[in-house]
Design a protein around this nucleic acid. Structure first.
Length: 342
DNA sequence: AAACGCCGCAACCGCCGAGGT
DNA sequence: AACCTCGGCGGTTGCGGCGTT
């Protein structure tokens, strides 16, 4: 573990710390307290540079450090704070008692970041990744069965909705009577979708908040937790849909009685279906009910450790994976003026 | 059993800002 | 204003453990 000594400047030792060195450092700090790191190694009888001592203390030896696996709550907090602060690990660590910035950084890079990527979420922007996003299939499916679009229930929902998505839903709804073909063409061109995705979680909205509490309570769009729940990557989405969304998308996906074939909807590759554990749908069209998708109340994100979220999970990692169970969750600002979208 | 490759994480590196002179 | 010192931070490295072949 740790980096091997690359040099030995000034006779100072580098590399992994020995228990003896740890004991010396702990004993000295217990007597004199931390600080004055330049002079500390000499006074403590350590052949280390002050910086190395400080890092060893702050990242490993400090008595208040909590070691062990990150809890769901901690992980949720990290994701939320990262979406606000970016790679400000020390700021994030300040809000996670017992965790160091280094530990959080490592955990982010080795666990959370990978999972976000798997789920089709850009870990930097916390936005769905365009290269994996296949909203066109979702919307195309909706177009195949416009009855699935129920705006009235949407408008009666107290959740908060991303205006761009609401606009999209409105357009789709209007297409019940109008020119479906034209819209399908637009979908194929993907211009609308690109615009949608790029505008969905602009970073500028993140930076305008003075603190995470303010941001968490006033942000009009998806919270980071919801973003984790927003799974657009396909594979894990399908898996989680089958396992844990009994009332919404998975129902539409598997058991929708009036499924309609749709040529514009690219079928799920067999391999994906196979890996996801999802039963192949022979007509090649999944029907997503926007009504059901939009029905989740969202004044506060569901806790990560909500037991109802985890079904058929075999490991904590799987549990967190299945946490991305809802394809979309929306929030509708009370001030939203529907006229803007109609 | 051995070889190989991947992953996790402690530790290092370089940069930056604050504070003192 | 310029310089220096110190501490803090984020990014990166690479060893050791573990799983896979």
């Amino acid at each position: 573990m740790g980096r091997a000594p690359c040099c030995d400047k000034n006779g100072l030792k580098k590399g992994p710390w020995t228990p003896e060195e740890d004991n010396k450092l702990i004993s000295y700090i217990q007597l004199h307290g931390p600080g004055n790191w330049r002079a500390l190694p000499k006074n403590a009888g350590l052949q280390r540079c002050g910086k190395s001592c400080r890092l060893r203390w702050t990242n490993y030896l400090r008595p208040d450090i909590k070691r062990g696996r990150f809890s769901f709550e901690e992980e949720e907090t990290i994701i939320q704070l990262h979406s606000i602060m970016g790679n400000k690990w020390s700021s994030i660590a300040a809000r996670l008692p017992g965790r160091t910035d280094n530990e959080i950084k490592n955990y982010w890079n080795t666990h959370i970041r990978k999972r976000l990527l798997r789920n089709g979420i850009d870990p930097v922007t916390h936005s769905p990744r365009l290269d994996l996003l296949d909203l066109s299939s979702i919307l195309g499916s909706a177009l195949c069965n416009p009855s699935l679009l129920n705006l009235s229930s949407l408008l009666g929902n107290h959740a908060i909705l991303n205006p761009e998505l609401l606009r999209l839903a409105t357009i789709l709804s209007s297409l019940k009577q109008e020119n479906t073909e034209m819209f399908l063409q637009n979908l194929q061109d993907n211009q609308l979708l690109s615009s949608l995705v790029q505008n969905q979680f602009p970073l500028s909205q993140v930076s305008q908040f003075q603190n995470p509490v303010e941001e968490a309570t006033s942000a009009p769009f998806l919270s980071p937790t919801q973003l984790m729940q927003t799974d657009l990557g396909g594979l894990s989405c399908l898996n989680s849909l089958e396992n844990s969304v009994p009332s919404s998308l998975s129902d539409c996906l598997v058991s929708q009685p009036n499924s309609v074939s749709c040529n514009t909807n690219p079928p799920i590759p067999d391999k994906l279906v196979e890996n996801s554990g999802l039963q192949p749908i022979t007509n090649g069209c999944q029907n997503y009910s926007i009504e059901s998708v939009l029905s989740t109340p969202l004044s506060s994100p569901a806790p990560l450790n909500s037991s109802s979220t985890f079904v058929n999970s075999s490991s904590p990692e799987d549990e967190r994976e299945s946490y991305c169970s809802s394809l979309f969750k929306f929030e509708i600002p009370e001030s939203l003026n529907m006229d803007d979208f109609l």
